[in-house]
Design a protein around this nucleic acid. Sequence first.
DNA 1: AGCACGCCGACT
DNA 2: GTCGGCGTGCTC
Length: 816
Amino acid sequence: MGKNPVYAEVYIDRPVKELDRPLTYRIPDQLQGQVRPGMRVQVPLGRQGRVQAFVTAITDQRPPVQVRDIIGLIDREPIIDEELLGLARWLADYYVCPLVTAIHTLVPPGKKNSGGTLVALTPRGWAYLNQQDDEEEEAGLEMLEWLAARGGEADAPSLRAMFRSQGQQVLKKLQAAGLVQVEQFKMVGEKGTGKLGIYPAFPPEELAVHLLSLSPRASKSRQALTVACAVPGLTVKELAARAEVTESVIRGLLDKGLLCQKAISLQAEQPERKVVWPRLTPAQQAAFQTIEESIVKGRRKKFLLFGVTGSGKTEIYLRAIASCLERGQTAICLVPEISLTPQISARFKERFGADVAVFHSRLSLRERHLEWQRIKEGKIKVVVGARSAIFAPLQKLGLIIIDEEHETSYKQDVTPRYHAREVAQERARRTGATLVLGSATPAVETFYRAQQGEFTLLTLAERIDDRPLPPVTVVDMRQELAEGNRSIFSRELQEALRHTLQRGEQAILFLNRRGYSTFVSCRSCGYVLRCPACDVTLTYHSSDQTVRCHYCEHREPSPALCPRCNSRYIRYFGAGTQRVAEEFAREFPGVSWQRMDVDTTSRRGAHETIIQNMLEEKIQVLIGTQMIAKGLDFPKVTLVGVISADTSLNVPDFRSGERTFQLLTQVGGRAGRDVLPGRVIIQTYSPEHYSILRAVEHDYPGFYREELELREMLGNPPFSYLVRLLLSGPREEEVIRGSQLICDWLQPGLQADQSLLGPAPAPLSRLRGQYRWHLAIKGPELEGLRSLGREVLQKWSKQRSGEVRLVLDIEPVSLL
DNA sequence: AGCACGCCGACT
DNA sequence: GTCGGCGTGCTC
Ligand SMILES: [Zn+2]
Ligand SMILES: [Zn+2]
């Protein structure tokens, strides 16, 4: 037996400051050579018999203390490779969190095993734990709590390690009681044992013909057929998931004889695909070539692809990815969750077939796990997904793309509060990959960095085929009111709608606020309905006559009488999308419309249906929130009406101007994307605001200059860095006392060029029953602020903090 | 975080 | 006298 490395450095799987350091254990003889970094093991810890830990290094250094033996392995293979382990270290350091928290972020649950069984709490299981009457026997309760402690699920190896042989019996009981569910994962590679796979019933080159033979309405069928050709041999379920269609669609195709079923063979990958690669415009070509050169030469360059809406950025991404694959490398493309639509998926799958995996939030645990496993096995070369896809375990990563890089959803809102853009830069740096950030409205910070030379700026100033950007008009709603128009539609918008509809074209009405009204108030006494748990007003929802909180789950029937004075004069103020829809229906009777916001798209498939209805022109007007502002491409939409540009303008955050400009530009970009010319009408009470004026002119550089000047004057990012400390707890006095205490800790340690803001109540001063106060520290470089934050966190954990929680937010994107 | 040790109050 | 409260300290 080899003499040297006999020790393993491990991190105990507990997210606590005191254990956020490596502990050394001896590798017992029978495990020699099997333990590798990235594996989970069981070790004894103090008086605890066995706990889970991550191996981070193998060493022959004997520590200057008594060492104990590793008890056993949980994994046969590392669940995280060394490159990603390094990235996890960076993440923990940059965002100030325990290493194990970072590791869990990189390897989300459901992926922590290599085939086998996954045990998860059912909703009933969760409910059971919450009501906590102790009917369940000791052992069962223990297992439920153990599961809850790790986010509600665990794989079989960990479960076995923790509960030994008796675990099986307990598990059976819980499963029978419906408190847990057990999901069976196939080991990848064992696919095809007797199962039937779906194959196209024609040679792949005939795909186009058969696609045309289908009814123009049968978009789902086309989708399924395309995927079946690209990835033959999937089971019905797998194909349904991958093509994002229901199983009935596939059965229909089987009946039509377009697909057939036969035993799955481990045949060679699908034959050559014939895909049409559209010609690039000269501007696209130039940008693409610059990116390609970086990929080819391994120049590990960073680009900002700044292209107006409709300039064809996606096509450049696709080319760059293809070029990457040709060189045997792999690629990640991040897309905001909100624009991760079936259309986008289809576009990638059409080009890259079985090489691509699309991660969207609707994937089940099993599907997610399957794809993750395929990535690890090298079967997937392109990963498309939202924020967390940045951690996809691809080997030989050559390219990272972040579409709509300014989107704030790239920042995680729980610890570790990482920004995928920052992680991407770091991962690109470590792997030598080329980085491409794309946007029509880059984040001010990003554009600033490009100006500083940190990114190479690639510009697409024109829409493809010389289509013009839509002209934008602003309507001053104060004027409108003064002239006696009390409708939420200005006369100009009404007029424009009428013309658009007469021409048989489509329109989008945008308002970034869902529900019917923004607040409900009593005319007699002025009482305003508020959420009992949050410091916000309740929104009226006309669909079921409830008032709801948009920050928590609270909802109640809308009162008929004022709760304070019993008056019947309850009135609804301010407009949301429901009210827009109602007023639209009244003013334009007979015109078909649909609303699209979280309330109408929560049902699976609802989102797709609405988009399909728009494309098929079953509806003429789409009324919606954010959701309709991003990335949708409806050729016949020629009018975009922004009901109110003021919602995002009035948010108390130094980035609200930027948000407003971005939102207006993005939503305006939905108009006139095809051959029909479009126009945009923006209604506002602040027509002189620079964000609005610049959006009207499609003038990003102008906006950027003005915004930058403001930021410089106020010393805000990118001229400084920010770290936010947020305290929350059920009793306000404690929270205030806590923030005062932290203020006292920070004050003396500040450098001359650092400053402390607050403590102050957060703009959202109460959320889900928790009072919230915050402080922010500002300084010329991040590391100084970070170490101040670290110190505070350290001190905080050492003192009895009651029920007050403290979280650090490095480079926050929102100060709400 | 767990888990044990330890030192003070109100029970059989 | 002891059962049990949770403050404090440590974990290779
Ligand atoms: Zn009243
Ligand atoms: Zn609430």
